[in-house]
Design a protein around this nucleic acid. Structure first.
Ligand SMILES: [Mn+2]
Ligand SMILES: [Mn+2]
Ligand SMILES: [Mn+2]
Ligand SMILES: [Mn+2]
Lengths: 218, 218
DNA sequence: AAAATAAATTAGGTGAGCCTAATAAACGAT
DNA sequence: ATCGTTTATTAGGCTCACCTAATTTATTTT
């Protein structure tokens, strides 16, 4: 049985490994708003318990056991977010904090029943894939909107980095998961991009925004 | 903000005060499977924070603030139990443990949305009243089945003490909240009682069981 | 290659929440 | 009124999850 703090560290390592090769102490600390020395303590403990390998000064990698447990956390987090949005009418910018608590509720029966109750959703409100009962995570090949070029027509698949501010900005522009956009112009000066939604007038997106939108070809 | 442990202590005091005048250290300890010395520590802390008055050697009483917070916990606990049974098809003997965790999730919006989603239920799966948004607890006047006499016809209103074993025993006899029974005979020897359900054959209930059934006149 | 910088670890300390053992208070029975 | 029992509190110690400050290791710059 892992504590809430151990689970949050494990999840941070998992998230950082999604792209990079290793998860580094300072990045874990930043993600959890804690200090590097605290992270070192925790990495030692998690390594002792067999959830990860800690190579001092060279970061951490998950073991199979660690990956499996991290996937149950991700599954719970995303299922709860889906419940909050689909059933309790929360906004997609209001769920992260609560799901951060709910993901630590320990009851395998609860998770699986919730999954069925929601109709075994494949993606959470932010477009992120939900691991299935066996912990299998279906990864889609998407690209970032800021890597697209003029004329591309794409569909928004996911928002990476679900900070409330970004989500509310998207709301205000009428953008959501599934929205279809055509890139009209790129501005080298500030990296901003003019896009045109399927219906409605074109508008501009800053690099900060387009960088965090995962899109797929339409 | 109270910790999970503080909240559990507060809830124990609240539960013990329902009948008695004061909540005593040893009873709180028994209820939480902890030691009296740990409870003393916690009572001091909760008293300092203004949730209760601790009269050393004479137990604890809740302040208005303490009662209000305890009621939010009871509300959350019972709403989650209702959700688990009504929406996720849990048995009434399977929900206590999980609700014990869920009651500590901190999000006023979540509780109230859940309440609405469930249709503002007045009672939980065990027949216990659910405090409303304002913390008002509607108490019914019920009597224990073991205080009834021959010929009484009553409806089961609630099960006090929701231990899994008792609940499963009731399941096996086809008894649930709302079941109507007529008392046929009392056996002084062991305190057992013969009862006849509305439809079906009469059967016997031990004192251990009848003592924990709250009933109301039909 | 040495020096400067960045990152990580270690050392040592704190408070929360538990424990056991020792002590003190309350209370029922003689 | 005192004794013995029950109950509660205090004293002291442990682990966990943090922290700051000091030190060590790795990396980048000169
Ligand atoms: Mn979390
Ligand atoms: Mn999400
Ligand atoms: Mn609880
Ligand atoms: Mn209940």
């Amino acid at each position: 049985m892992l504590t809430r703090s151990e689970e949050d560290h494990l999840k941070a390592v998992f998230a950082l490994l999604q792209d990079g090769e290793s998860a580094f102490t300072k990045d874990i600390a930043a993600r959890l708003s804690t200090k590097a020395s605290s992270v070192t303590d925790m990495l030692k403990k998690l390594a002792e318990k067999g959830f990860l390998k800690h190579e001092p000064y060279y970061g951490a990698k998950l073991t199979a056991k660690g990956t499996a447990h991290a996937l149950t956390l991700v599954r719970k987090h995303r299922l709860w977010e889906t419940f909050l949005v689909e059933r309790l009418s929360f906004g997609w910018d209001e769920v992260h904090e609560v799901a951060e608590q709910l993901e630590h509720i320990s009851s395998p029966k609860l998770v699986d029943r919730l999954d069925d109750y929601l109709g075994n959703p494949r993606f959470d409100p932010h477009g992120d894939p939900i691991p299935d009962r066996q912990g299998k995570l279906r990864v889609r090949k998407t690209k970032r909107l800021d890597t697209c070029t003029t004329g591309d027509t794409v569909r928004i698949a996911a928002v990476s980095e679900t900070t409330d501010g970004l989500l509310r900005l998207l709301d205000s522009k009428g953008l959501r998961i599934g929205s279809v956009l055509t890139v009209q112009e790129l501005h080298a000066f500030d990296g901003s991009m003019d896009v045109k939604p399927k219906s409605g007038a074109a508008f501009s997106l800053s690099k900060d925004v387009s960088h965090h939108l995962q899109v797929e070809s339409n």
